[in-house]
Computed example of a mutant assay.
Amino acid sequence: MSRWDELGDDELMAELAEAVAETVDDPEVTERRRLAASAAFTWRTVDEELAELLHDSALDAGAAVRSSGDSPRSLSFIRGAVTIEIEVTGSSLLGEVIDDDASDEPAAVSLQRPGAEDRVTETDASGFFRFDDVAPGPVRFVVVRGGWSLTTPWATL
């Protein structure tokens, strides 16, 4: 194997194809890991799809001192004309997809967690969605509507 930083594009693609072929029957490489690796490699439109964290109430100055664990937490993510607002209360998440270029079509919202199956729901006519029984830990959201998708960065609940 060559040093990766010394390979041209065609040589790198050949090395990657060889590595994938070698691991197809490897029992230690799970299908989920194989799919994640493939997705990471093929996600070439990351700048067009990845939202940025606009606001997290847990990061407000002094929030840990002034607020109790019972008060709702709010998260806002934005990318272009699309904003995702999420309110976390206990184990429930209430969210809204706000699309300045909105269509009447509902959006599919996936809640993703490491090592767990994705949970998927659709927005209602106003763009609202809800997930119940969400345990603490890392999450991210993927919103798909029509010809676009948006992925939030990971956040820890």
Rank of each mutant, 00 (worst) to 15 (best):
V97F: 05
D101H: 06
A64H: 10
V97E: 01
G146T: 06
R32S: 15
G137P: 13
A58H: 04
T152P: 08
R66M: 09
V65I: 12
W4E: 13
D9Y: 07
E18R: 15
R113A: 11
V134N: 05
W148M: 10
G137C: 06
T83A: 11
V82Q: 00
R119Y: 05
V144H: 09
A51M: 15
E18A: 15
R119V: 13
A61R: 12
L12W: 01
S67C: 13
S38N: 10
V24Q: 07
W43M: 08
I98Y: 01
L54P: 00
T121F: 06
R66I: 04
T30V: 03
A135I: 09
P114L: 14
V88M: 03
L157I: 07
R119G: 02
A17K: 13
L150C: 05
V139R: 03
V139G: 04
A107G: 10
R33Y: 12
E122M: 10
E31G: 06
D124M: 11
R113P: 11
A63F: 07
E22D: 08
I98H: 00
H55A: 05
I84L: 14
S110G: 08
S2E: 09
D132P: 10
S38A: 13
L16Y: 06
E31T: 12
E117Y: 08
G80P: 07
F129Y: 10
A102D: 13
E6H: 10
D101P: 00
A102H: 09
D100W: 02
L16K: 00
S71P: 03
G62Q: 01
G69Y: 11
P114G: 08
P153F: 03
M13N: 10
E48V: 00
S57E: 01
V20P: 06
G127T: 04
S91E: 07
S67F: 12
T152E: 00
P114Y: 13
T45K: 12
D9G: 01
R73V: 08
D47I: 00
D9W: 07
E122C: 01
G62F: 07
H55I: 01
E18H: 14
R119E: 10
E122K: 08
L7F: 05
D100A: 11
E6R: 12
D99L: 00
D60T: 00
A108N: 14
S71Y: 12
R130H: 14
G95W: 02
L93K: 00
D60A: 04
A19Y: 04
E18N: 14
R145H: 06
H55F: 10
W148H: 13
L150V: 13
T152W: 01
R113Q: 13
A102Q: 06
G80L: 04
E15V: 15
T45M: 09
A63V: 02
V144R: 15
L157E: 02
T42C: 06
V46D: 12
A40T: 12
E52F: 09
D9I: 04
A63I: 01
R113C: 09
R44F: 08
W154R: 04
A37E: 08
R140E: 00
A17G: 12
S2W: 14
A108G: 11
G115D: 14
E96T: 06
A81W: 03
S126D: 14
S2M: 11
D132K: 11
A17V: 00
S71V: 15
E15D: 10
T42N: 13
L111N: 09
G90P: 02
S92K: 15
S67M: 12
T23D: 08
D99P: 01
A61N: 07
V144S: 15
T83H: 02
